[in-house]
Simulated assay, not measured.
Amino acid sequence: MLLENKVVVVSGVGPGLGQALARLAAAEGASVVLAARNRDFIENVREDIVSRHGEAIAVPCDVSDPAQCEELARQARDAFGGRIHGLVNSAYYHGEWSFIENADPTDMTRGFDVNCLGALRLTQAFLPLLRNGGAVVNVSTMATVRPYAGDHGMEMGYAVAKGALNTLGKYMAADLGRFGIRVNTCRMGWIHGQPVEQHIQSMVDAGTPREEVVAGITSDIPLKVIPPEEDCARAVLMMLSDYAAVVTGASLDINGGHWIAP
């Protein structure tokens, strides 16, 4: 199995990619630490993993609070023997859709605090446990390289904060290699899970045929599918595995070819 005998921490375990990452990591043999602000949700995911004979603990954590990040690291250490092999920084705050003229700097500051500094805080808290072979993956977005907008505004605040995370990841990789820690970034595009399915259904409910909604999303995706949630999670977790043992400082685009980096 891809992550057999490894301990993996996943932040931002919510209804989207986060829960898929946690479930798949467990299925691939990892002991999993689930973290998010929603205690009930992560406990439900933990119970599901355990019911399938996996190992997991669920620890509420707000990555904007350094004390909670430190407590997460303490509980992970105590539960699984003091060694962490992988950390996935997928906690996020999306914030408002806006145009330049009505962008709220306060909301954008909140996005930066969670999306970028949250990953920094959590990585700092886990540094002692990641030394000598650990790996970090920062989950980012295609919107950092391909601006996305709709009638209600642009995905600007979220993308700008994740753009900062992209740069932070490069500095993490350059610095933490001396401790034997790899750091990579995964830039996600459309992910066909619960949140996207809700978006599709809302448009169907408004009168647009489902086939038309899906065709609109996939029209400029070369693979002509909305990338399935589990396949996206597999690509992220591969970066934690031994198959990427000498890969650090890289950015992996996971989007079915929707954005192809130069």
Rank of each mutant, 00 (worst) to 15 (best):
V32P: 00
E4W: 02
I226V: 14
D65K: 13
V45C: 03
V183Q: 02
G14E: 13
T167Y: 01
A27Y: 01
S140G: 11
S219C: 10
A22Q: 06
A67P: 00
L24C: 06
Y158M: 08
V236I: 15
R39A: 15
H85F: 03
H85E: 03
P222H: 06
D62N: 15
V114G: 10
I49D: 07
Y93I: 06
G14R: 15
S251G: 10
D231Y: 04
A20P: 08
D65I: 11
Q124K: 15
T141C: 07
V225T: 14
M142E: 13
R83K: 15
A35W: 07
T144H: 09
V45R: 02
T218V: 15
V204M: 08
N132L: 06
V246S: 14
D242S: 10
F179A: 12
A79W: 01
V50W: 04
L165H: 07
S51C: 05
N44A: 14
L129I: 08
T167H: 10
A119C: 07
E43L: 13
L21Y: 00
F112H: 10
E55S: 14
L17H: 07
L130H: 04
I226F: 00
G81C: 10
G153C: 12
A56N: 02
G86R: 02
V136T: 02
A27P: 02
A235Y: 00
R131T: 11
L87P: 03
I221N: 02
Y158N: 07
A245W: 01
R74G: 03
V183C: 14
F99P: 09
S251M: 09
A35I: 12
N44I: 04
P262Y: 09
A76H: 04
V10F: 01
R210A: 05
P147N: 09
L252N: 02
M1G: 13
K170Q: 11
G118A: 10
A20I: 11
G163D: 05
V214N: 06
R131L: 03
Y148E: 15
W190V: 09
S31Q: 14
V139S: 07
F99Y: 14
G163L: 11
N138V: 07
V88S: 00
R74M: 07
S251D: 11
E96Q: 15
P105H: 10
D151C: 03
A149T: 14
G81A: 12
V137W: 00
D62A: 08
A30G: 03
M108D: 07
P15D: 07
N89H: 06
G256C: 06
A164K: 13
N184L: 04
G157C: 09
G169V: 10
D48A: 14
T185F: 00
I254C: 04
E101T: 13
T109H: 12
C232Y: 04
V246F: 09
V114K: 11
Q68D: 07
M108P: 05
G86C: 03
A161S: 15
V10S: 04
A149P: 02
T123P: 08
F41E: 07
E155W: 10
A174Y: 09
R52F: 01
Y92G: 14
N255C: 13
I221G: 01
